[in-house]
Simulated scan of single mutants.
Amino acid sequence: MAVLGDAYTESEARELNQAACEILEEQPYKHPVVVPKCREAFDVLDSEVIKGYPNGYSELKPEDYSNISDWRGEPVHILGGSPELQWEEIQKLTQPNLAGDPPADIRGVDWNGFQKIAYLGEYWSPDGWQEADHLSIRETVRKSLEEIKKYWQEKNVWPETVPQDIYGDAVEEPDEYLWMDDGGDPITGREELEKAYIGEYEEKGKLAFKSEAEKKFIEYREDLTLV
């Protein structure tokens, strides 16, 4: 997904539409998203361009400049809002109505609220925010993501194929499975690898460190040049 920006005027919508169409032509595996924030944008944006539906803290809400019918029949990405709020909007955009409008094609959703609240020691769940003082920030974020996945699976909208099936786990692996801080303690599992500070260097490739301070110290002492 490539979010190009907000279209507040018809001329801006035309410029963003041209940029999105160029991306689609040159890189068809990417999915440009344009947020139409004026009614005229719906008449200008190509049918293949995904429309970003503001659902978070945007100053302008969709109802300020459009009707729900403007979004129906279009490819849509829900921008922001908790899963419950996203589900409410999805119902408005897809359920049968008296006008017989076609449902919107919901291409995706996103939300970063659970990442912010993780720093306050809580994770998201369908039953409300739960205490997570016993978890690290990374573990708290992971717990929220697990709960969000379960929520969408219960709604029967979770995709059959997920990125991990295609690309593998989103974990950067060092060339050498040793902590460079102590020179010999092996990295034995995913948890240790996720906690590592990774650096990529011209001469030594990717190296793992137990802390950011040790990483900077060894970079300085060994005069390591980052790629």
Rank of each mutant, 00 (worst) to 15 (best):
F42E: 01
A41E: 04
S66P: 01
E48N: 10
T161C: 06
E26Q: 14
W152T: 06
D105S: 09
Y8G: 00
E26V: 11
E200P: 01
Q130P: 00
R138A: 15
L145D: 10
A20S: 09
V157C: 14
C21I: 05
Y201H: 14
S66G: 00
E26L: 11
N156K: 11
L93S: 04
H134S: 09
M1E: 08
I148H: 03
K155F: 09
P126W: 08
D175S: 06
L60K: 09
E222H: 13
A170V: 01
E194R: 13
D169R: 11
R107A: 04
F217E: 14
Y123G: 05
V227H: 15
A213N: 08
D169K: 15
S47M: 04
E200G: 09
A132R: 01
E192A: 13
G168E: 06
K37S: 11
Y151V: 02
Q95W: 09
T94N: 07
E172F: 15
E139H: 15
Q130C: 10
R142S: 15
Q164S: 12
T9L: 05
G121T: 01
Q164I: 14
A132E: 07
D181N: 09
Y57S: 05
N156P: 04
C21R: 11
A196F: 08
D127G: 12
S82F: 02
E222L: 11
D43V: 00
I137N: 15
E59M: 09
S69Y: 06
V3W: 06
I117A: 03
F217W: 10
N17P: 07
K150S: 14
G189D: 15
E147I: 00
W124N: 04
P102F: 11
K30E: 13
Y57R: 05
E131K: 15
E12I: 12
M1N: 13
D64P: 01
V44M: 01
E222S: 12
Y29D: 14
Q95C: 11
R107H: 09
D133Q: 15
I137Q: 14
I90V: 00
E147M: 05
P186R: 04
F217V: 08
T225D: 14
S58F: 03
Y197K: 14
A99V: 08
F217D: 15
E59N: 09
V3P: 03
P103A: 07
D64H: 04
L60C: 04
Y65D: 00
P174R: 04
K206G: 08
I117N: 02
I90C: 06
T9W: 07
A213S: 04
Y8Q: 06
V109A: 09
R72E: 02
A213P: 06
D175M: 02
K61A: 09
P75E: 05
D64S: 00
K51Q: 10
D110P: 07
R72C: 03
L226T: 11
E88H: 04
G183Q: 10
V34N: 02
